Computed example of a mutant assay.
Amino acid sequence: MSNENPLLITRHGAVMSISINDAPINRMSFAFIDALEAAVEEAATDSSVRALLFTGEGEANFSVGMDLKEAMREVPARGGWDTVLDQRLRVLARIESMGKPSVATMFGYCLGGGLELPLACHFRLAADTGTQIGLPEMDLGTVPAWGGSVRLTRCIGRDNALDMVLRARRIDGHEALRMGLVRSVHPVAELKAAAMALAQELAEKAPLAVDGVLRCIVGADERTLDEGLREERKAFLHCAASKDQAEGARAFFEKRKPVFTGN
């Protein structure tokens, strides 16, 4: 991987596409994580970015996860595992909670960090053939550490998560769809276009309302019903005072597509 371009960023209107630039295996190097953190922060603070798309270069693999050989060299130099994990968890939490919807493509190997990054996204689409999704850490004598065990359990349930993690079992796109890990499967040649179409659809929604819905739904399992209802009311009242809400109402009565500005 070139340390100068560990990821590629492209803009498609209001969608920022972030692609791992290490084809064909797309390792998540330390340079990649550093660049990813910077890109995610840019997306979070740029009001012109309304949705994110995460993918990998080529059509062979989304990502095999961490480069283990590099980790053996770099972890001590970066202050040990606590410091390394703090950064990774911080980046994934930022993706999940920034208030902008994110879409991930899953094709070929999606292992370790190659699953944990998509798990932090709000939507996941998979290739209908050739996909191998899993957390192989048990076969290495360790456990997932980028939030994989927690987010996977919340996504597919305790029993399915135990089966995948304890057995280091890999699943394909169709099984992932049955479990609810991905929302749809597509031919690999069409996968990125389908993911981009979804990201662009999400980017057209009212930003304040999108942020409100994400705040209500992401982390809902951690709240009581009353806490969740208060969060929903807060989001509604915030939108009610917005220009976008007025635009949505006008567009409804005028039978046209609304144009939201984020105000």
Rank of each mutant, 00 (worst) to 15 (best):
P6Q: 04
I9V: 15
T10K: 09
H12L: 07
G13Q: 06
I18R: 07
S19D: 02
N21E: 01
D22A: 15
D22K: 03
P24V: 03
I25N: 07
I25T: 08
N26G: 03
R27D: 00
S29L: 07
F30G: 11
F32S: 01
D34L: 06
D34N: 13
D34W: 05
A35I: 05
L36G: 12
A39D: 06
E42C: 08
T45F: 11
D46I: 02
D46A: 08
V49G: 03
T55I: 11
G56C: 02
G56L: 09
G56V: 08
E57C: 09
E57F: 06
E57G: 04
A60C: 09
N61M: 05
V64P: 08
V64F: 15
V64S: 13
G65I: 11
L68Q: 03
M72T: 14
M72L: 13
R73K: 14
P76A: 02
G79A: 05
W81S: 02
T83P: 00
V84C: 13
D86R: 13
D86N: 11
R88S: 01
R88D: 04
R88Q: 09
V91P: 10
L92A: 03
A93Q: 13
I95S: 10
E96T: 14
G99K: 08
G99V: 10
K100A: 11
K100H: 12
K100S: 12
V103R: 03
F107G: 00
F107A: 01
C110W: 15
G113N: 05
E116G: 02
L117T: 00
L119K: 05
A120I: 08
A120V: 09
C121A: 04
L125Q: 02
T129S: 02
G130D: 04
T131P: 13
T131V: 14
Q132H: 08
G134I: 10
L135E: 10
E137T: 04
M138Y: 09
D139P: 00
G141R: 10
G141M: 09
G141A: 08
W146L: 15
W146Y: 15
G147Q: 05
S149N: 03
T153A: 13
G157K: 05
R158T: 15
N160T: 12
A161R: 11
A161T: 14
M164L: 15
M164W: 07
R167Q: 15
A168V: 08
R169C: 06
R170W: 11
I171Q: 06
I171A: 02
I171G: 06
D172Y: 08
D172W: 11
D172R: 05
G173Y: 02
H174Q: 06
A176F: 04
R178A: 08
R183L: 06
S184D: 11
S184I: 01
V185T: 14
A189V: 15
A189R: 12
L191F: 14
A194M: 03
E201I: 07
E201Q: 10
E204V: 01
K205G: 03
P207R: 04
L208W: 01
L208F: 02
V210P: 11
L214N: 01
A220L: 14
E222L: 08
T224P: 08
L225D: 09
L225T: 14
L229C: 07
R230T: 14
A235P: 09
A235V: 06
L237T: 07
H238A: 15
A240Q: 06
A240P: 04
S242H: 11
K243Q: 14
K243G: 13
D244G: 03
A249N: 01
R250H: 09
F252D: 00
K257H: 03
P258C: 07
V259M: 01
F260L: 04
G262A: 04
